[in-house]
Each structure stands twice: as structure tokens, then as C-alpha cells.
Design a protein around this nucleic acid. Sequence first.
DNA 1: AAGTGTCAAGCATTA
DNA 2: TAATGCTTGACACTT
Length: 291
Amino acid sequence: MNRTLRDRDDPVRCNRDMRRATWESDGLPYASELTRQNFADLLTVLRWNRDHDVRFYRCTSTLVPWNSQFDLEALPDYDEIRRLAEACGALVDDAGMRLTFHPDYWCKLASESPATVDRSVEAVEYHADWLDLMGLDRSPRYAINVHIGATYGDKTATAERFRDAVRSLSPGARRRLTVENDDKPGLWSVTELAASVSDPVGVPVTFDYLHHYFTDRGDTYREGFETAAATWGDVRPIAHYSEPKRLRDPEARPQAHADRVADLPAWLRERADVMVEAGAKERALAEIRSA
DNA sequence: AAGTGTCAAGCATTA
DNA sequence: TAATGCTTGACACTT
């Protein structure tokens, strides 16, 4: 989100949503209206980003609320929504910006439950539909970034299920999928992802700097990044950078992200497009640029 | 008008 | 066995 635009008297935001009861009573027409407003505001955010030299944007997964329940073409305002989406994509492309999605925590492609896998595959697919609607390349340049996010007590079997889910994706979804290292020691490190997911089925690994602290397996940050970077082929790698909130607030969980960042490593910026993950969002970026 | 608790989706971890 | 966090807003309800 963009805090500057969100905090205006007339807020600009792309995550208008509704609850189940509203979906059941108001259905597609209301979903269409929210989607239209979300895309209209996405265009405003992207213009702001272009004008302020913010070249990397993580878009909300609530861009099209309840999209698991319908196809985009079914929306009453589809034509207008498509025009707005195409304008968003053209702006991103013309300005050389990157735009990524990060499906929510319940997107579990390697779940032991086939129904959960089906819903998760469907979630990745509708994120890909949005990127297609915007006319953006089917490439991890415009990533749909997920975590495996679980082991189910058996990493080998979990990796196998993840690979099967990847193989079941449509080309537009599969070619944009990336997988990120987790933030708990028992879960997935960059080395494990590179070996069990990237090498066999070609999914690039997003290196998250803070998460590497919890899953480093003895590798330095640079070593972890190099392992991940090698999985990106011709596409410039994505890295996530954030600092622990605990540096400023001793009560905070070790995994919690700080509102701001102080030190964005130069070596990382040289090799990757870096997404700053900070509570203060674009303000955190402005502050390190002016420092 | 402003504040509070709960809400579609899944796991690992901690209490 | 039950909270908690992951992110933040929608909505119903209370003040």
C-alpha cells in the first residue's frame, strides 16, 4: 500500500473488500464495483510511484475481492476494468517498473489436503489472470511470490507435492511463480528451495534478507543471496530487505518487521531489485534516500 | 462519530 | 488444547 495516498482525506487504496455475508447478498455487481475502484486507484498509485521514482510495487491480493468465486469476464464492469488494468500495465511497462503479488498465508501449494491445494492453485491462477489483464509479461519479472510455509513433518514429501502443484499450473501462472525462504528454522531455507524446487521445476527463489536469519543453515547473507540469485536465469533477481522491529522495540517478536530501515546493503542493491518491507512503506524508502 | 470485536481460506509455534 | 501471528479492512455492534 501507499501510506501517503492512503492517508489523504479521500483515501486512495486498492484493497476494498467485503465479508462473506455481503458477498452472498450483493454478489457480482458489488464485486465488480469494488474491483473497478481498486484498479482505478492502482493506476493512481502507480502514477505516484513513477513520479516519485518508486520502481517496485507489491500489489495487494484483495485487488479483486472474492475472485475465487468467479471469472473476471463475468464482472458487469469487465470492459472498464480491463481498460483500467491495461493502463496500469502500460504504465508499469513504459516506466520500466516491476510489480509483484504475494498471495496470502492460506495459499498452501504443498498442503496434504487436496482441497487446500486446489484452492491454492486457483489463487495463483487468478493472480496470473490479473497480470494477463494488465498485459504484463509471463515472466518472474512480474512475480507471483509464495512460501511453501509448512513441512507437514516430511520435507521430502512436501517438496514433491509442491513440484506437482507447480506442474499443474497454467503456463501464465507457472512462468510467474517464485518461492521465498521462510522465517522459521523448521521451514524452508534458500538452499533447500533451490535444490528441491528451483532445480527440478524452474521456480526462482526470492531471497528475503530478514528471513535468512532464521533459516541460514550456516550460510552468510551473501552466500544465501548467491544461491537464490542463481535460480533467476535472465531475469534480474528479486530480494526482500527489512530489519527486525526488535532493534527498536525489545518486546517485538524476532520475526516482526521494523517500520523503517537504516542500512540497505550496497552489494544487494547492485545485484537485485530490492523490495523494502517496512511498516512505513514508501516513507521508509524516502527516508533512506534523503539520509 | 468513534471505538471494539470478529471475520473465507492454513500452518507452525508458543502458552 | 487453545491462542497467536502472518496484513489490514469490512462490518456489526456498542458507546
